[in-house]
């Protein structure tokens, strides 16, 4: 086909409004084999055996570096330790960048980014330890997680890769806990329940971000965020209820409502993790309440019978909702 004919044909099709501009551009990209804009397939397409092996390989490299440094801590000099950790993190990042530029090597690139993300905190620990800082303190841990967060946020801003979103979420969670640890230190006004409230807040945050991502190209991250989010949220809410006589009545009363709301939200969001964790936590709640309040009044055997029947009911609800709404 001649160029002029092709252009004329496109004009006619556009005039008849058969094709939108976006559809025409997408068709052009597909035909020319070019990648549109910032399309990133890592974490979007389903992982095959090869991709899984890349990531497992990356994790094993990290383990190798960690064990090397740990076993030879006293014999290795500081520069060797630094090169083996921080140097390896920088090297892996550069390799990730080089591989990540080619679409066919993108997953290998992501495996190198994974090595970089795992080894970077160890490298920073080595650096701070040598500088004389107490690496176990919340202040230094905040600094390490904050630096790692900044690195991967900036990487996302520059390269727009989904894997950096994942690392940013993980490091921001770490930073959130360490910063609040640092602020609170050993302050007696903030006891163990403060930790539970932080898990609750992190869980809610994961759920909201997961929901926001579910409507974008990052929808593959939603499953991860929903899973950990609902686990943190319900786990913290159950733990906040405490145990008699030091129980928190508010959380004990509100918990079944939260668990049931989770079950029904699973239908709306089509999220299996909501259904699974909602059911498991409802079962845990039934057992907890039975053990806490009904062992002396009704007698332990009768309480167990009632708890068992309720567990069967929850199990049935799980299967029913899963089948009816085809939750995968």
């Amino acid at each position: 086909m001649e160029k002029n004919e092709a252009v004329q044909y496109i004009k006619e099709v556009a005039a008849q409004k058969v094709l939108t501009k976006e559809e025409a551009v997408a068709a052009y990209d597909e035909g020319a084999g070019t990648r549109p804009g910032s399309k990133d397939l890592v974490l979007i397409k389903k992982l095959g055996i090869a991709e899984i092996l890349y990531y497992i390989g990356g994790a094993i490299v990290f383990l190798g570096i960690a064990i090397l440094v740990w076993q030879n801590w006293s014999t290795l000099s500081f520069p060797t330790r630094l090169i083996a950790t921080l140097g390896a993190a920088v090297g892996a990042y550069i390799l990730g960048y080089i591989f990540g530029r080619e679409e066919k090597f993108e997953t290998i690139g992501s495996a190198f980014y994974l090595i970089s993300a795992l080894v970077l905190p160890i490298g920073l620990y080595v650096l701070f330890d040598n500088a004389g800082f107490d690496t176990g303190s919340a202040g230094v841990q905040s600094l390490i997680s904050g630096i790692a967060l900044a690195v991967f946020l900036l990487s996302y801003a520059a390269l727009r890769k989904n894997i950096f979103t994942l690392f940013s979420i993980i490091f921001s969670t770490w930073f959130f806990f360490d910063l609040t640890n640092f602020m609170v230190a050993g302050n007696p006004l903030f006891g163990w329940s403060f930790f539970e409230y932080r898990v609750l807040v992190a869980g809610i945050s994961y759920l909201l971000i997961g929901y926001a991502f579910s409507k974008s190209e990052k929808s593959s991250l939603s499953g991860f965020l929903y899973g950990f989010g609902i686990l943190g949220f319900l786990g913290a809410a159950l733990a906040l209820g405490g145990w008699s006589p030091a129980q928190n009545v508010f959380w004990e009363l509100i918990f079944p409502g939260l668990a049931l709301a989770t079950l029904f939200t699973s239908v709306y969001l089509k999220a299996k993790s909501f259904l699974t964790f909602g059911s498991l936590f409802l079962m845990a709640y039934i057992l907890k309440i039975t053990g806490e309040y009904f062992t002396s009044g009704l007698g332990w055997p009768l309480a167990l019978v009632l708890a068992g029947l309720m567990l069967i009911a929850v199990g049935y609800l799980y299967v029913y909702l899963k089948k009816k709404y085809s939750l995968e």
């Binding site: 921001s172 959130f176 910063l179 609040t180 602020m183 609170v184 302050n187 006004l189 903030f190 409230y197 932080r198 807040v201 992190a202 809610i204 945050s205 994961y206 759920l207 909201l208 971000i209 929901y211 926001a212 991502f213």
Partner: peptide, 22 residues
């Protein structure tokens, strides 16, 4: 973007709350 903004803001609010209460 409201859920995304809320998801990022809630932990920040907790940090501010902790700082304020201390």
């Amino acid at each position: 973007n409201l859920p995304l903004i809320a998801g990022i803001t809630i932990p920040l609010l907790l940090i501010l709350f902790v700082a304020g209460s201390i």
